[in-house]
Amino acid sequence: MQKFYKVLLVVLIIIVAINIYAIDWQSDVLSEDNQKFVFSIAAGVLGIILLFVMNTWSKIGVKK
Rank of each mutant, 00 (worst) to 15 (best):
E32V: 07
A22T: 08
D24S: 05
L12D: 00
K3F: 09
S27F: 08
F4I: 14
G44N: 06
Q26Y: 05
N19F: 01
V29F: 15
L9F: 05
I49D: 00
I18P: 02
A43I: 02
F52Y: 09
W57Y: 08
I48K: 04
Y21E: 04
D33T: 13
I14A: 15
D33R: 08
Y5L: 10
I41Y: 04
I14M: 08
Q35V: 13
M1A: 08
S27E: 15
N19T: 01
M1N: 04
K59T: 04
Y5P: 01
L46G: 10
A22N: 12
L51W: 02
N19R: 00
A17C: 02
K6C: 09
I18V: 13
A22E: 07
G47R: 00
Q26P: 00
L8I: 07
S58T: 13
I13L: 11
L30M: 09
V10Y: 13
F37W: 14
V11Q: 12
L50W: 07
V45R: 02
D28R: 15
M1L: 06
D33S: 12
K36D: 11
N55P: 06
Y5S: 10
V16C: 04
I48A: 04
G61F: 11
A17S: 04
N19Y: 01
Y21D: 05
I20N: 08
I15V: 11
N34M: 00
L46T: 12
I60S: 02
V10E: 10
W25A: 05
A17G: 02
S27Y: 12
V53N: 07
Y21F: 11
L12H: 01
W25L: 09
L12T: 00
T56H: 10
A42K: 01
M54T: 07
V10N: 10
Y5V: 06
L9G: 05
Q2V: 12
A17K: 00
L50D: 06
N19K: 00
V10K: 12
V62L: 14
A43V: 03
A22W: 07
I49L: 04
G61M: 11
L12E: 05
Q35G: 07
F37N: 14
K63T: 05
S58I: 10
D28V: 14
F4T: 14
F4A: 15
F37K: 09
D33M: 06
K64M: 03
L51M: 02
D28A: 15
F39Y: 12
E32K: 10
S40Y: 01
Q2S: 15
I20V: 12
L12R: 01
I41N: 03
N34P: 01
L51F: 00
I15G: 05
I20H: 05
I14W: 07
K36N: 10
